[in-house]
Simulated assay, not measured.
Amino acid sequence: MLTPPEYRLINGRVYDAVPACLYRAHGNAQARQLASADWLVRDRRDGRYVATLHHGRARFFLRNSRPRPRADALDELLFDAAAGSGLRPVSDLEPLLAELGLDVLEYAERSGLAPVAEPVQLEYAGRDRYRRPLWLDYDAAKAWRRMRAAAGGDGVILDAISGFRSAHYQMGIFRRKLARGLTVSDILQVNTAPGFSEHHSGHALDIGTPGEPPAEERFEATAAFAWLQARAGAFGFGMSYPRGNRHGIAYEPWHWCWSEDAQS
């Protein structure tokens, strides 16, 4: 059974669970249901709302023709919540990459990247620039709060653009870009394949600063980037994709990843 909402995300295989108080409803009926709930259960594949939980009892949203909720997946989610922290084994990547015309082993060899396991639980790290809940690994969340406070003390404002992203969320990015006419090769220059993103670990952050557009190379000209270059290492953060990186990913001055080994 899920306890009353702690500020954490339970990352199940099919569904996830998040504190209901942190999320907006998509209509009046949903608003009433969320208002009386402890947890919101979502489908990891597309983010749709599946059910709410209150004192361990599930109440499913009415969806007409939408796929029926899976009771076994909900039971599995509750089991994951009781199991506590840990990493979810990397699996089910083949269908996602096959949709993109990619082979898991070939992509790993060509890119020099390895599949990234996702945490079973993640910590609430505040809100991002768009007022969405920001989820990170427990230690990365603590480091982010400390780093952001230190930057603020130096007169520099750091914004989180995004934190944890599941492999299915990453796949959604590819689908949206493909719908806009980009090719898989184009997208792979700026996004790693689903299952291979550092964002899956809960350690990575895309960082911005007020007045600057998100995830653009011009971020390197800001005081925020200069501060990160000088100070981020002391908090365990390093820039993952400098110019000419061996993975073939475009230069990303905004993408920083936490590692205990990176602290100086």
Score class of each variant (00 low, 15 high):
39 W>Y: 08
69 P>R: 00
20 A>V: 01
72 D>E: 11
109 E>A: 14
107 Y>E: 13
63 R>W: 04
97 L>N: 04
137 D>E: 15
76 E>A: 01
51 A>P: 08
131 R>S: 15
69 P>D: 03
66 R>W: 13
52 T>A: 00
129 R>C: 10
66 R>S: 13
109 E>S: 15
45 R>C: 07
70 R>S: 11
39 W>G: 00
143 A>Q: 00
27 G>S: 12
63 R>N: 11
133 P>M: 07
21 C>W: 14
66 R>D: 11
20 A>W: 03
102 L>E: 05
121 Q>F: 00
81 A>G: 10
69 P>C: 05
57 R>D: 01
25 A>Q: 03
129 R>D: 04
61 F>E: 01
73 A>V: 03
126 G>S: 08
77 L>Y: 04
44 R>F: 03
28 N>V: 15
135 W>G: 01
21 C>G: 14
99 E>R: 12
73 A>N: 07
120 V>A: 09
50 V>A: 05
33 Q>E: 14
87 L>K: 11
99 E>A: 14
70 R>W: 01
48 R>V: 03
144 W>Y: 15
88 R>C: 04
70 R>A: 06
126 G>M: 11
58 A>M: 03
36 S>M: 14
56 G>L: 10
99 E>P: 09
43 D>T: 00
127 R>E: 12
105 L>S: 15
83 A>V: 08
112 G>R: 06
54 H>D: 10
22 L>G: 02
68 R>T: 08
42 R>H: 06
33 Q>C: 09
68 R>E: 13
37 A>R: 00
109 E>W: 11
122 L>N: 06
42 R>W: 05
103 D>T: 04
35 A>F: 08
126 G>L: 07
